[in-house]
Design a protein around this nucleic acid. Structure first.
Lengths: 157, 157
DNA sequence: GCTTGGCGCGCAATATCATTGCTCGACCCC
DNA sequence: GGGGTCGAGCAATGATATTGCGCGCCAAGC
């Protein structure tokens, strides 16, 4: 039961998670040094955390601007129906759009919060239009990000 | 000029970025194999991408539920003022709250979109109350996440 | 109280990987 | 053509990951 709230995570495990959340490419030797263990048991703990699904993966964090994405914005999308088929169809559609990075259903259905990236304002407008024009979409409210004060990945450990 | 849109990123660089965004702990040997290079030039490219800030870091992705955070939600917060001092004060405050994982200013000031985590609904309510009670906060609208159809980190490569 | 297991650590050995210096070929500008 | 630059590959070295094994610690049973 990998989603069992903690209970089996001791202090060392939490420290390992905190370190790897902060720097996922740290060598096992360095990680072991920081948590006060020798390398082998440290690696075994990391493997266990991976196998239990507590560590889901490792990702490089890239600079969006360097890759040509100047704009990050959010969109609140309201659908005309709360029928499951409609909701799934919408989710399936945005799943295929590479510019849509996150799609969360909110308030019990019929509404979605999306996070998107765009190369420029023209691209952003095009994406908004595409959303508005999509079947069953009733409302689109875009939330342009002006500045980001905090962007911590993951969860506090 | 690390934020210069691409131009200096060739096809191999992009492939490296895509692979590392997907699996940030891949060994350099494996990465080199996938992009069709030998290990040394591959490593040199990765180092260059790191030094130029195109790769900002590496992070483990953790299961929030396993760490005791059952709930992820968003909050739209409106302030009573758009004065820079007020905006900064609000940002400084939420920066200190571990449960606030992201804080984006939207629509030119006075409004913020936050992403938060909470252990349970009681915790969530407490956080919402704390937000509402904070100085200069005029409105708080919470957007409860019912289900997440897509949660891709980073940007398309 | 001693024995018996289970559990998790550290040690040591080996395979794998990261990292450096060097050489070579391709391309460009003269 | 003749430097010059750039980036790749090779080879050698140092670090790291990974495995097997033995030991000590704690807890349950006799």
């Amino acid at each position: 039961m990998q989603t069992d709230p903690d209970f089996s995570l001791d202090e060392v495990d939490r420290q390992i998670l905190a370190e790897l959340q902060q720097d996922g490419r740290m060598t096992n030797v360095e990680l072991a040094r920081r948590v006060g263990l020798s390398a082998p048991p440290c690696l075994r703990r990391v493997r266990r955390l991976e196998e239990e699904g507590i560590i889901r993966g490792y990702h490089a964090e890239l600079d969006p601007v360097a890759l040509g994405y100047e704009i990050t914005f959010f969109a609140l999308v309201g659908l005309e129906s709360q029928k499951e088929a409609v909701l799934s169809a919408f989710e399936g559609m945005v799943r295929e759009w590479p510019e849509v990075r996150e799609c969360h259903m909110i308030r019990g259905g019929g509404d979605f919060l999306l996070r998107l990236v765009a190369r420029d304002t023209a691209h952003e407008n095009a994406l908004t239009s595409r959303l508005t024009a999509a079947p069953e979409v009733a409302r689109v409210q875009t939330l342009q990000t002006i500045r980001t004060a905090k962007d911590a990945a993951g969860v506090p450990v």
